[in-house]
Design a protein around this nucleic acid. Structure first.
Lengths: 221, 221
DNA sequence: CCGGATCCCCAGGGATACTG
DNA sequence: CAGTATCCCTGGGGATCCGG
């Protein structure tokens, strides 16, 4: 990317991560951990392979990723984030939290992935009742499946299935995710096609996070 | 910008703010408040005027900015952020904080602006001694001047001059900013050309912020 | 002087095909 | 599977011009 040539930490950062696809590649590496080229390609529908290749080289040149040859049974290169790359997690959290407000918009043919289903409640909600008993929620959004585990004040998620769910949420991604991140209440989510079976009270413990931070007056730091 | 077409709040956000120059325009509007076209152009050295015009239209279409005709004595359009646009401040903070690590790199002919000098200590440091007496620091970095006011646990900054400074820091931007945001200690900053006159103890109260947040295990949310 | 619009040119990105 | 090569086209950089 062409440098902005400004002595400002925001501009300096954007010189490294401002290119198209770059932050989404970081997102995939953050959510998936060390990944093969093809895994990244699958997680980034629409990316041209030459562009992915170029970006991985640029990221490595910037010191945000590295790649290593993994021996059998993987037997291929694995790309992963360095410490500086991992340090982008708060940036992705901030961007993602801001972007939640646009998840209500319907774009019918958007791609969707279980990893994206999983990170949202983990990053953007807290357990409102830290002293409550453990709870497990099975999600199935447009066939993408993930599990939420509530307990001890934390919200942990993972991709896949569980056999000991207290609550199961099934439906279109917009209904499931909208409900989880606080963009829709249960009634609205059901109107959007959600089916909830089990201990619906568990939903009350999922509280969308708010920013602790108070906006500065405009023009005054 | 071409949409990523992914049902993911990060991708949705980047559909709106991922274009080149867009976040820097938001930065200027955030730091300057309502601005004229020419003010934005001056704060964004290198931007082509047609591109600035295009971006302002796109930002307005996205609902992040609006513009209003200001009566005399301004007598021109003023561009400003909407509530959704202002909500990008945490995003810019996160990006800027991450980018601080690259402020040590020297790019000799980078542009520099007093607004960028001012936001850094305000966003990225705290007052380590909230009960201490008020303190005022005058900054002069490459001729760009700003004032830091310490007191009551907050770090406030403004562009310009004061006549009641307890401490004055003068020198190249890299030395002044590096010292303020914790990339350099006083000895190193002086080696880089810094001159400090006055109550140097005040510097000990400026503490670079750390992220409260603990990085998740890779691949586990 | 302010607020753009127009034009030209080139780099960066998208799509597809192909190869080790 | 893991990329590279190629072609095409859009979008951005830079300069200039124009109306208010």
């Amino acid at each position: 990317m062409r440098s902005y040539r400004q002595y400002c930490s925001i501009a300096r950062a954007l010189d490294l991560i401002g290119d198209r696809w770059t932050l989404l590649i970081v997102r995939e590496l953050l959510l998936r951990g060390p990944s093969r080229f093809t895994d990244l390609r699958n997680g980034l529908p629409g990316v041209a392979p030459n562009l992915l290749s170029t970006r991985l080289k640029e990221l490595e040149e910037s010191g945000l990723t590295r790649h290593e040859y993994a021996p059998s049974p993987v037997a291929t290169q694995l790309y992963q984030l360095t410490a500086d790359g991992l340090a982008l997690e708060p940036v992705l959290r901030a961007i993602g939290l801001w972007g939640v407000r646009y998840m209500a918009d319907e774009h019918s043919d958007d791609a969707f992935d279980a990893n994206w289903l999983a990170y949202a409640p983990s990053w953007f909600t807290t357990d409102a009742n830290p002293d409550g008993p453990p709870g497990v929620i099975q999600l199935d959004a447009d066939g993408e499946r993930a599990v939420i585990e509530l307990g001890g004040g934390t919200v942990r998620t993972s991709v896949g299935d569980t056999d000991r769910a207290d609550l199961t949420l099934t439906g279109p991604a917009r209904a499931v995710l909208g409900l989880l991140v606080g963009q829709a209440d249960l009634r609205l989510a059901e109107a959007l096609g959600l089916t909830a079976s089990g201990d619906v009270q568990l939903l009350d413990r999922l509280r969308p996070i708010r920013l602790s931070f108070v906006a500065a007056e405009n023009g005054v730091h």
